[in-house]
């Protein structure tokens, strides 16, 4: 299957979904007016990936900002990965947040409370948005 390689923009994140390594990355800002339009292909990709996933899948989230319209879409990504895990494959989420960004840490904890995936909270000086 094809990988997803999207360059970030002022409103949308950098996306690298690699089906060969099982590394799924979301970086930068996710503040589009219409998040569903942006996330639908990503969610479809995971659906397809779920049919033959790697032994271990890692979703690395490094967001500086995301809007509430993205938050539902990000939850949908997590839910898709939850299914991959329920099918017996290892899935882990690395949630990055900048020093002092309590809000972003709490946002990660909120997802952690809703989703049954192992989360690792990782504090960084500055999120890598390249």
């Amino acid at each position: 299957m094809n990988d997803i390689l999207l360059e970030g923009s002022p409103k949308t994140p950098t996306v690298h979904f690699n089906s060969t390594t099982g590394l799924l990355e979301l970086r930068g800002r996710s503040i589009p007016e219409n998040s569903i339009e942006f996330y639908r292909p990503l969610i479809d990709w995971i659906d397809q990936y779920a049919q033959a996933p790697k032994a271990k899948t890692l979703l690395r989230v490094q967001l500086e900002y995301f809007n509430t319209s993205s938050s539902k879409c990000i939850l949908d990504l997590f839910k898709k990965l939850e299914q991959v895990r329920n099918a017996g494959h290892a899935v882990e989420v690395h949630w990055h947040y900048e020093v002092d960004d309590e809000d972003m840490l709490e946002a990660g904890e909120d997802y952690q409370a809703i989703i049954s995936l192992p989360f690792k909270m990782i504090q960084v000086e500055e999120v890598d948005d390249k």
Binding site: E33, N34, S35, S69, K72, L75, D110, A113, I114
Partner: peptide
């Protein structure tokens, strides 16, 4: 915080993605 989590998890969302989270 609880309201946010409940709305995020159970809320119905408009096509624009809103649904009261804002």
């Amino acid at each position: 915080r609880e309201l946010y989590k409940n709305t995020l998890n159970n809320g119905t969302f408009s096509p624009s993605g809103g649904g009261g989270l804002g």
